[in-house]
């Protein structure tokens, strides 16, 4: 779709896009190009000599068991975050769509975690689950659970998943609620007249009609788990204990900033860019599909 040609000017459109393009070039394209360049080079320990090494940095990465482990951790983390984030918010949205009284109040009470920074969400849950003083740790102890995420990898993973899901529920909830409210009531009524129980109606009518929203949220949640949860990890486990919560984004940061491994970190950046491109394409496929509806 295009507008009919309306305005003509030899210089004005360029002036109008200039700020955006300038920032894009300086802070997006130039660094991205540098990441690619560094990923193909090796720098000595003093940063004095740079040597072209081709794909050696990538080869090293894929031989590095830590990096491969980080892939697995990221996959597990994003699947857990996406699954629980979507399942819980779908449940809540379905219930909120059902109740007539108080729906608005529930909505208001459920959406505000969106306003909480991931890092802050991490700190809150780290405190609640703190091994010695956490209130939930205390309760868990009462139930005989030995809770210490600082030394137990699976508990550390659980902690960051809880913090990440908790923050993301409000977002998913809003989209599901909007999706549910756009389903024509007549469809539900027709199914009710056909004798379908509420449970059956949900799985045979509501859920299939929501599938575009669900797919969209799936992609968004995976992107969220991959990138936006950096704050959650950094404020709580910092990738530990061991490598048990060291997701890819955190590892790029750690290797580049803390360990100052320029080539390795840049190679990881390039791989991440590739992942983002795949996810973005998936997201746009979805949008195209939605347009056809």
């Amino acid at each position: 779709m295009e507008k009919r040609v309306v305005f003509r000017s030899a210089w004005l459109p360029y002036a109008l896009v200039a700020p955006q393009i300038a920032i894009t070039l300086v802070f997006f394209f130039w660094p991205a190009a540098q990441a690619v360049w560094y990923s193909l080079h090796l720098q000595d320990a003093f940063g004095l000599k740079v040597q072209f090494v081709g794909l050696a940095n990538f080869a090293t990465l894929f031989k590095d068991s830590n990096y491969l482990a980080s892939f697995k951790v990221t996959a597990l983390f994003s699947v857990l975050v996406a699954f629980f984030g979507i399942a819980i918010s779908l449940l809540l949205a379905t219930m909120a769509d059902r109740v007539l009284r108080g729906a608005m109040a529930y909505k208001t009470l459920l959406i505000w975690p969106y306003a909480v920074a991931p890092a802050v969400a991490g700190v809150l849950w780290a405190f609640i689950f703190a091994p010695s003083i956490g209130i939930l740790t205390y309760i868990l102890k009462g139930w005989g659970v030995d809770w210490n995420w600082i030394i137990k990898g699976d508990q550390a993973m659980l902690l960051v998943v809880i913090a990440a899901v908790w923050k993301q529920i409000s977002y998913n909830f809003l989209f599901f609620l909007a999706g549910l409210q756009s389903i024509p009531k007549s469809l539900i009524e027709a199914a009710a007249i056909d004798g379908a129980s509420p449970f059956r109606r949900f799985w045979t009518i509501v859920f299939p009609l929501l599938s575009p929203t669900t797919f969209f949220l799936l992609v968004v949640n995976i992107v969220y788990a991959f990138f936006d949860t950096f704050g959650v990890i950094d404020a709580t486990t910092q990738g530990g204990p061991g490598q048990s919560t060291n997701i890819l984004v955190y590892k790029v940061y750690h290797d580049g900033v803390k360990a100052a491994d320029l080539g390795g970190s840049s190679a990881q950046s390039v791989i991440l860019m590739f992942i983002v491109i795949v996810l973005t394409v998936a997201q746009f496929r979805f949008i195209e599909r939605k347009v056809q509806y």
């Binding site: 991205a32 990441a35 560094y38 940061y253």
Partner: peptide, 10 residues
């Protein structure tokens, strides 16, 4: 496709 997370160092 270029979020800050993937081009941290440069």
């Amino acid at each position: 496709m270029l979020p800050v997370e993937v081009r941290i160092i440069p």
